[in-house]
Amino acid sequence: MEPASDKIYDTLKRHWGFTEFRPVQEEIIRSVLEGRDTLALMPTGGGKSLTYQVPTLARPGLCIVVTPLIALMKDQVDRLRARRIAAVAIHSGLSPRQIDIALDNCVYGDVKFLYVAPERLATEAFRLRVVRMNVSLLAVDEAHCISQWGYDFRPSYLRIAELREKLPGVPVLALTASATKPVADDIMRHLKFAEPHILRSSFARPNLSYSVRRTDDKNGQLLRLVHNVPGSGIVYTRTREGTEQTADFLRQEGVPAAAYHGGLGHAERALRQEEWLSGKVRVMVATNAFGMGIDKPDVRFVVHYAMCDSLESYYQEAGRAGRDGARAYALLLVASDDSDRIARRFEQEFPPLEKVKEIYESVCSYLQVGVGDGGE
């Protein structure tokens, strides 16, 4: 039986204290409750998590949320538990014993949300338990990771189709902030949608000011912004070394700043993230490993020291500013020699077509596959 309109509004009011949904949120929720496979394209900060949390709380059963980020899982689980909603997360940071307990709680307990990394879907422990869970919805966050055309392809996401076979009749809600038409088609195909179904929210962010400054004194421009715009911010640099240097520079200028990158230990990253979320650190200087799925509504500025690899990545990273709807600034700093540097990097990362053809032919020859055969 589909919950009536007042049921979803009652759920929204009871757990979040809101009386209205944002544009398209209600449409997505109704689509899910009707049992339709749905691809939801919503901007960063558009309230994606409510679109699977509300329908799950409005009826019996639990929701499995597939997400690539441990930081996001922890953040979401903490937030749900703070609202007295039972939620667990399974990721590489847990011992096998802890994972077993969490999965058993999903089978026998009152857990409403199970957050899981895509890599975990293939494990024996997960496969044996999931068929015994009362699953009402499968939510796939950062769904562009499923597409080879997306800017963050993760092969482990392709296992979600296998998971669907174990959960017949359970609808899937795929969520992303950026998907071109080929990516959207790819997502729906790989997730075995019963029929194509896309719901789009407006991507306009009227409170966010985008600007590009051409300067050879990036530190000076950064300092000007930091001194003129109150509140917390993120500064994206391309290298780990760059994050440390820029954070040092800001600290020397009296700005509480920390560096965040993949070279830090897990505990150190978690500590720095916590200090930034709590406001102890004002500016986080990071590689693009930081920020995905982190929900800090009052970020007043995002500064890019270097251009991103794609417009989608830029939109997603810049969009971490101003999620509370108040005025915020996205600033891209471009030096005179940046374009040459980017062209060189592009050439290093992507070999010329002739080289690709040569490697392809060598691989086909080694595997004794006819050139042009061996699709998939």
Score class of each variant (00 low, 15 high):
M1A: 07
M1D: 06
P3M: 09
A4C: 08
Q25P: 00
I28Y: 00
R36T: 01
D37R: 10
T38W: 04
L39S: 12
M42G: 11
G47H: 00
Q53C: 00
P55G: 01
P60G: 15
V66D: 02
T67K: 07
Q76S: 03
V77N: 07
R79K: 15
R79G: 00
L80F: 03
V88P: 01
A89N: 09
S95K: 15
P96V: 08
Q98F: 05
D100I: 09
I101Y: 10
D104V: 08
V107N: 08
G109P: 05
F113I: 03
L114F: 05
E124T: 14
V130R: 06
R132S: 13
V140K: 04
E142H: 01
H144Y: 11
H144T: 13
I146K: 06
W149M: 13
I160G: 03
I160M: 04
A161H: 10
A161I: 11
L163Y: 05
L167H: 13
G169K: 13
G169D: 09
V170G: 03
K181L: 13
P182Q: 12
A184G: 07
D185W: 04
I187N: 04
L191E: 09
F193D: 06
E195C: 10
P196T: 03
H197I: 01
H197Q: 11
I198M: 13
R200A: 11
S201P: 03
S202W: 05
S202R: 12
A204L: 12
L208A: 12
L208V: 08
Y210C: 12
T215N: 12
D216A: 14
G220M: 11
R224Y: 08
N228S: 15
N228G: 14
G233D: 05
Y236M: 00
D248F: 09
A259K: 11
A259I: 06
H266A: 13
E268K: 08
R269F: 01
A270Q: 15
L271I: 05
R272C: 10
R272F: 12
E275F: 04
S278A: 15
S278Q: 13
K280L: 08
A289C: 15
G291M: 03
M292P: 02
M292E: 03
G293V: 00
G293L: 00
R300T: 02
R300D: 02
V303M: 05
V303S: 07
H304E: 05
M307L: 14
S310C: 08
E317L: 09
G319E: 03
G319C: 06
G322N: 01
L333C: 05
A335W: 00
S336K: 14
D338W: 01
A343M: 09
A343F: 02
F346T: 06
E347F: 04
P351D: 09
P352C: 12
K357V: 14
I359N: 10
Y360V: 09
S365A: 15
Q368L: 08
Q368A: 11
V369D: 08
G370F: 08
V371P: 11
G374N: 11
